Amino acid sequence: MSESAVRRLIEVFEAISSAIEAERDHLSELDGAIGDADHGITMAIGFSAVTGELARTDAGSAGLSGVMTAAASAFLNAVGASTGPLYATAFRRAAQALEGRDTLDIEACSLLIQAVAAGIGER
């Protein structure tokens, strides 16, 4: 297993979390046009939980699939309503797609993105 690939995937989640936090108010404002104006807050809570969980992950033994599984559980435990199950399903499908892979090459990234999209569509 490639510890550097696992670390890179964890860094991707950290970058997403930072971007969501930076745009939290804007995302909630956009959501207010059609919803209850809490989407930015919800996403920030979910990704903060993911990065917190991944900060405790041993990159040497987790594996890419393990990172996605941990992300799914953390997001689901932190966020209810429809968003929690939606992202948890997406991340779990990505975990399945990355099972046995130890690099984040173009093929693995493509499988990850396709699996996330399929998980969202499935949910």
Rank of each mutant, 00 (worst) to 15 (best):
residue 1 M to S: 04
residue 1 M to E: 00
residue 5 A to T: 00
residue 5 A to W: 00
residue 5 A to H: 00
residue 9 L to Q: 00
residue 9 L to R: 02
residue 11 E to Y: 00
residue 12 V to G: 01
residue 12 V to F: 00
residue 13 F to L: 02
residue 17 S to D: 14
residue 21 E to N: 10
residue 22 A to Y: 05
residue 26 H to T: 15
residue 27 L to Y: 07
residue 28 S to I: 07
residue 29 E to G: 14
residue 29 E to N: 15
residue 30 L to D: 07
residue 31 D to V: 08
residue 31 D to N: 14
residue 32 G to E: 11
residue 35 G to D: 07
residue 36 D to A: 10
residue 39 H to W: 01
residue 39 H to Q: 12
residue 39 H to L: 11
residue 41 I to F: 13
residue 42 T to D: 03
residue 42 T to L: 01
residue 44 A to K: 07
residue 44 A to S: 15
residue 45 I to Q: 12
residue 45 I to N: 09
residue 48 S to L: 02
residue 48 S to F: 01
residue 50 V to P: 04
residue 51 T to W: 01
residue 51 T to I: 15
residue 52 G to F: 02
residue 52 G to H: 08
residue 53 E to G: 06
residue 53 E to N: 02
residue 56 R to G: 13
residue 58 D to G: 10
residue 58 D to S: 13
residue 60 G to V: 03
residue 61 S to N: 11
residue 61 S to W: 05
residue 61 S to T: 15
residue 65 S to C: 04
residue 65 S to T: 08
residue 66 G to E: 10
residue 67 V to C: 10
residue 72 A to N: 13
residue 73 S to P: 08
residue 74 A to T: 13
residue 75 F to K: 04
residue 77 N to M: 13
residue 78 A to V: 04
residue 79 V to Y: 11
residue 83 T to L: 10
residue 88 A to S: 15
residue 89 T to S: 06
residue 90 A to I: 07
residue 93 R to Y: 06
residue 94 A to H: 07
residue 95 A to T: 05
residue 96 Q to Y: 00
residue 97 A to C: 02
residue 97 A to Q: 06
residue 99 E to N: 09
residue 101 R to Y: 00
residue 103 T to L: 05
residue 104 L to V: 04
residue 109 C to H: 03
residue 113 I to G: 07
residue 115 A to D: 11
residue 115 A to K: 09
residue 116 V to C: 13
residue 116 V to K: 10
residue 118 A to Y: 01
residue 118 A to N: 11
residue 120 I to E: 03
residue 121 G to T: 06
residue 121 G to N: 14
residue 121 G to A: 10
